[in-house]
Design a protein around this nucleic acid. Sequence first.
DNA 1: TGAACATAATTAAGTTAGTTAAGTATTTTG
DNA 2: CAAAATACTTAACTAACTTAATTATGTTCA
Lengths: 180, 180
Amino acid sequence: MEQDIQFEPTVGREDLLIAGKDDAFREMVHNLLAFSARLEQIRSRFGAFVGLSGVQYTLLISIRQLQSERGVGVRALADHLAFSPPFVTSETTKLVKLGLVTKTPNPDDQRRVHLRVSDKGTALLSQLAPIQQEVNDLLFEPVFAANYALVRQLAASLRASAEKAVLLSDYLVGTERSDQ
Amino acid sequence: MEQDIQFEPTVGREDLLIAGKDDAFREMVHNLLAFSARLEQIRSRFGAFVGLSGVQYTLLISIRQLQSERGVGVRALADHLAFSPPFVTSETTKLVKLGLVTKTPNPDDQRRVHLRVSDKGTALLSQLAPIQQEVNDLLFEPVFAANYALVRQLAASLRASAEKAVLLSDYLVGTERSDQ
DNA sequence: TGAACATAATTAAGTTAGTTAAGTATTTTG
DNA sequence: CAAAATACTTAACTAACTTAATTATGTTCA
């Protein structure tokens, strides 16, 4: 008779283990994985609708989101999306050439740059809005008035804990890398 | 005096609008976006620790997750992660060559294939487990006993609604594409 | 002050991650 | 059993993305 093979748990905290097993945790992780793959698919479709790649669409809405009064810099945008700065430079330059984004020097620091969505970019996004509304209404169907605040709070805190977890994993992989 | 520019809301449902505005919704979406970018960063680190790319690591754990008694097929794996079947073929072939995965014909259908994590693959993953535990404990810090069931339920239902939303966006972009 | 160092963005060069299209083998359908 | 469909693979290619080097500016401190 074959023995019941049990993997090492992928999570340690007692709160997240059920009867000492991580099955439920792993299922959750894979659901999140599939969810985030679908978010990416949807961004590709949104982009396609306005003639952009999924990444360009993501950059455009991220610039809109991060720009304050003055604009957002290349580095901040790269960090937000976990891209390399040269990649952000190259893709945002394309958006500038399309007239969707403006790139102006930061007056307080000539090395830096202010990225902002242009009027044309704003117009393009509002053209997309009806489709976004339909898709987002369905995408977030499980979120409704009674749990909205909780889900928003959860998204914010998961994002923060994920940032810490990236730093930890950098540290662990850097220092404890196996030598075989 | 500059007029208060307000974008078209990106979501329609009243439940998700606050005072008719989608600011909170957009903030949530961008938090989820950043969260999912960090999940990807962490998978790259996990992969690096055992000599794999982030995608190869993701494929390996997804095979482990989806394999039933017999194994999982190329198509099912591709759908799960939103990759093309040829890409899954090529990457899983690399994992087979590394001895981490087995690929055997499905006896019931000679066209199909059964992918399974090999003993060597299981060993590799259990070598990684201590690091996964540390990182996952921190990554999911906002999840604890009192909200665990709710978060798991949310992950499952968001994954399901996202699948529907992908189909809808395919339909909308395919049929309503602007002609300018 | 000004030399050494650090930071922001870009350019150039290259790699990897992914795709679409075409082909083979098998299974299903009418 | 011929025609159509499905599963996977191979081949050919493109897009996504990185690292390394460069330019320009700003910061630090002997």
